[in-house]
Computed example of a mutant assay.
Amino acid sequence: MTENPNQPREYDAVLGGESQVALSAAVLGGIPGVKSRLASPIVEVKIAALSEALKYGDAGLDLIIRALQDESIAVRFAAYSLLKDRDEPNLKQQFQKYLPTFEFDVITVNAQGKENSRHRHYAHFFPEDLGNGSVLEMVYIPGGTFMMGSPATDKYRRDNESPQHQVTVPAFFASKYSITRAQWQPLMGNNPSWLNFEKRPVEVSWDEAVEFCDRLLQQTGKKYRLLSEAEWEYACRAGTTTPFHFGETITRKLVNHEEHCPGYPDDIPLHSKQPTDVGSFPPNAFGLYDMHGNVWEWCSDRCHENYNGAPTDGSSGETTNNYRVMRGGDWGSLAGVCRSDYRCLVSEDRRGYGGFRVAVSSSS
């Protein structure tokens, strides 16, 4: 095929103001060249241009601030990473406008379920307007590496939670809460919940959860999906290695669950034997609520009987069976079932059994 002589090739130097810029091209023209690359449809080109903009003083800084409004989440966070350590007063206002944060307390407990620490944390999120006054808050989950599964020393471990293995999870966004009836209704047009409360999580089949993600994609253009099983456990643990992100145990002061296993405290009455409003209990260090108890949450994976041969990159595991993975336990679960590493394998067409939260890649 004959090359178009009017288009830059991969390693060509191009003048600022050219509309088509190859990813590896050297761009000339100072600020005009940076502006040109920021107009590119290629996310990697935009991010490279932001780093170059720092060379051009206030004019370059202004371009980086504008990038906080970019339609790409990845570009917005690249701009944020370049600006976050600067102390100009107007930057904090820009962050809250385009990359808002929320603050919360992170609690840990001792083996008897008594609070032994409380620290103030914050997390970034972006709001997604679902219509009808409903907003989906998507919390930034930083990438990292963790040990997935239960250790051999855990007396409550099950065979399908082993072998414990290292997994590296890229950064992504996850919904702050399980999807609620108020969030479901504008997109799906029905109410699948057996409780008529807008802030209670919906309980649907795996296929229905996936259809919700598909409709979100159609409405927003972002590739919404269910969390993979690895992403779910990583997000639930939020940097912890204990059975629960609170510590070695949970109580009904912290989690909506049914009753205790031997060795787990059980000191207050049941929560009406039904799901509670999302956000009724303290979050983990990533700012995610109700990762233990309240409702089970569907993951994208087809289940593996154990972790032999499971992915180590945070992606979904695939087999040929019709069973999916659910995580987190629910309001009727024993405490031991609500552990970060507990796995429930369920037929994907089972209705009214699982809630879910949604994810989107940080590179979208």
Results as ranks from 00 to 15, higher is better:
E3D: 02
N4T: 01
P5K: 05
N6V: 02
Q7F: 15
R9G: 10
A13T: 11
A13K: 03
V14K: 01
L15S: 06
L15R: 07
G16C: 07
E18A: 14
S19L: 09
A25S: 12
A26D: 01
G29V: 13
P32I: 13
S36L: 03
R37Y: 11
R37H: 03
R37K: 09
S40T: 02
V43R: 08
E44N: 05
K46C: 11
I47H: 02
A48T: 03
A48L: 11
S51H: 14
Y56M: 06
G60M: 06
I65T: 02
I65H: 00
D70H: 12
S72Q: 02
A74H: 04
A74T: 00
A74E: 00
V75P: 02
R76N: 04
S81D: 10
L82K: 08
L82I: 09
D87V: 11
P89G: 03
P89E: 00
K92T: 11
Q93R: 09
Q94E: 05
F95G: 05
K97F: 06
L99G: 04
V106N: 04
I107C: 01
V109L: 08
A111P: 04
R118Y: 12
R120E: 03
F126T: 10
P127D: 04
E137H: 15
Y140V: 03
Y140A: 05
P142T: 05
G149P: 04
S150V: 09
T153W: 00
K155G: 09
R157F: 13
N160G: 06
E161D: 04
Q164R: 14
Q166A: 15
P170E: 02
F172P: 01
S175T: 09
K176F: 05
S178D: 02
T180Q: 03
W194L: 08
P201Y: 06
A209Y: 03
E211Q: 12
L217W: 12
Q219S: 13
L227P: 08
S228C: 11
F246H: 06
E248H: 14
I250W: 12
R252G: 08
R252Y: 07
N256H: 06
H257M: 10
P265T: 07
D267H: 09
L270I: 10
S272V: 04
F281K: 14
A285F: 10
A285N: 06
A285E: 09
G287E: 00
V295T: 14
W296R: 05
W298A: 07
D301T: 11
C303T: 10
Y307H: 11
N308R: 12
A310R: 07
N322Y: 13
V325N: 01
V325I: 15
M326E: 05
M326N: 07
G329W: 14
L334A: 13
G336P: 04
R343G: 03
E348L: 15
D349T: 15
V358H: 08
V360Q: 00
V360F: 13
S361D: 08
S361V: 05
S364F: 14
